[in-house]
Amino acid sequence: MTDAPKATILTMDDAEILREAMAAYLENHGYRVLQAADGREGLEIFEAARPDLVLIDLRMPVLGGMEVLARLREMAPDTPTIVVSGTGLLQDALEAIRLGAWDFITKPMADMAVLLHAVDKALDRARLLDENRRHREHLESEIARRTLALERSLEEKKVLLAEIHHRVKNNLQIILGLVAIQAEEADSDAERERFSRLETRVRSMALIHQQLYKHGDLSTIDMAEYAQALISSLAAIFRHAMAGVEVICDCQPFQLGLGKAVPCGLLLNELVSNACKHAFTPGQAGRLTIRMALEDGQAAIEVADDGRGPGPDFSLETAQTMGMTLVRELTRQLEGTIRRLPGPGLHLAVTFPVDQASAKPAA
């Protein structure tokens, strides 16, 4: 039984004796060889048989070798082509390579082994290129498949996480309702005050989950939008005490990851609600300014009022009120620092570090 040929080679050459000699030699080494006497015939055979490699003479009638190379580059750019030509001009060799030839052999050949070596080398290279292409296509297909699976999994997790935030928000709203009922049943102003402060703290956390559910980004919070909503809520709660006070919210848009946003929101709630409750006497005109910004990896919060001030014995480090105790603890959780700045009333500034993975300017 005859072995299958290693590959099919098309040789185009108008010199019949040389063409026959090359064909016989290559066939003796296991190749199937097709022959064409000119370029036009060669292209017709190529179209019909699609050989694995083409040998081309540059000087042929009807259609020259350079034109054949140009046509083959358009028809089958991955098919290896070797020029076998009697012209030894460097210019011809360079032009042939530019048109896509893989190798250039001058004739007459003293040893046909030169031709066999060039053919074997070109076919090995073509095989490796084809294997690489197939491997790359397989990898691209596998990457696309796995990417799609990950996207679907991520979407499912986002839906689940959104539902969790929605339920947490609803549960916090229920807690707020229970706190309001307890406040109505309180026996003293002091008790009602404690319930009121508890309500603002729970509300500050509920706003976080409301923002997450509202915008669909389940990993970061727009702190400017959050601050506006929180301050509006506090202004409504303390509307009688703040009747004559102008509230200025100068908050630059930036986003915080959930791990920083929750303690930051609670901290902002304590600073603003303390000012709303203690800075001004009812009906007193004044100004309360809240600033937030993100600069050089540091988040900064400033709350300043021009009210009556906390008194000469006030100390950030030793104040024992529930509000200031929470402010110190939340600042510690954020790994930040708190300072009192000069000015009328009370001006507090908190800064804390934020890594680039969890914070970014809002779009």
Results as ranks from 00 to 15, higher is better:
residue 196 S to C: 09
residue 197 R to N: 08
residue 201 R to G: 04
residue 202 V to F: 09
residue 202 V to R: 02
residue 203 R to K: 07
residue 205 M to Q: 13
residue 206 A to K: 05
residue 206 A to S: 04
residue 206 A to G: 02
residue 207 L to H: 03
residue 209 H to F: 06
residue 209 H to T: 04
residue 210 Q to P: 03
residue 210 Q to E: 15
residue 211 Q to Y: 05
residue 211 Q to R: 10
residue 212 L to P: 08
residue 212 L to N: 04
residue 217 D to V: 06
residue 219 S to V: 07
residue 219 S to E: 12
residue 219 S to L: 12
residue 221 I to G: 03
residue 222 D to R: 13
residue 222 D to C: 10
residue 223 M to C: 12
residue 224 A to K: 02
residue 225 E to P: 01
residue 226 Y to P: 00
residue 226 Y to K: 09
residue 227 A to R: 13
residue 227 A to Y: 08
residue 228 Q to V: 08
residue 228 Q to P: 00
residue 228 Q to N: 11
residue 228 Q to R: 15
residue 229 A to E: 14
residue 229 A to Y: 06
residue 230 L to C: 14
residue 230 L to F: 05
residue 231 I to P: 00
residue 231 I to R: 10
residue 232 S to W: 02
residue 232 S to K: 14
residue 234 L to M: 10
residue 234 L to V: 01
residue 234 L to P: 03
residue 234 L to K: 02
residue 235 A to S: 15
residue 237 I to K: 15
residue 238 F to R: 06
residue 238 F to S: 07
residue 239 R to M: 07
residue 240 H to I: 05
residue 241 A to M: 06
residue 242 M to S: 05
residue 243 A to V: 03
residue 243 A to D: 07
residue 244 G to I: 11
residue 245 V to Y: 09
residue 246 E to D: 14
residue 246 E to Q: 15
residue 247 V to D: 07
residue 248 I to N: 11
residue 248 I to M: 07
residue 250 D to A: 13
residue 251 C to N: 10
residue 252 Q to P: 04
residue 254 F to I: 10
residue 254 F to A: 11
residue 254 F to Y: 14
residue 254 F to V: 11
residue 256 L to T: 07
residue 256 L to E: 03
residue 257 G to A: 08
residue 257 G to M: 12
residue 257 G to D: 09
residue 258 L to E: 03
residue 259 G to F: 09
residue 260 K to Q: 15
residue 260 K to R: 15
residue 262 V to D: 02
residue 263 P to D: 08
residue 263 P to I: 10
residue 266 L to T: 03
residue 267 L to R: 00
residue 267 L to N: 04
residue 268 L to I: 04
residue 270 E to A: 01
residue 271 L to A: 07
residue 271 L to S: 04
residue 273 S to Q: 14
residue 273 S to A: 15
residue 274 N to R: 10
residue 277 K to Q: 13
residue 277 K to S: 04
residue 278 H to P: 01
residue 282 P to F: 09
residue 283 G to W: 08
residue 285 A to W: 11
residue 286 G to T: 06
residue 286 G to R: 06
residue 287 R to A: 02
residue 288 L to D: 03
residue 292 M to G: 15
residue 293 A to I: 08
residue 295 E to L: 02
residue 295 E to N: 05
residue 295 E to K: 10
residue 296 D to H: 12
residue 297 G to S: 10
residue 298 Q to G: 00
residue 298 Q to K: 06
residue 299 A to C: 02
residue 299 A to I: 02
residue 300 A to T: 14
residue 301 I to W: 09
residue 302 E to A: 11
residue 303 V to C: 14
residue 303 V to R: 05
residue 304 A to F: 01
residue 304 A to G: 00
residue 305 D to T: 01
residue 305 D to A: 03
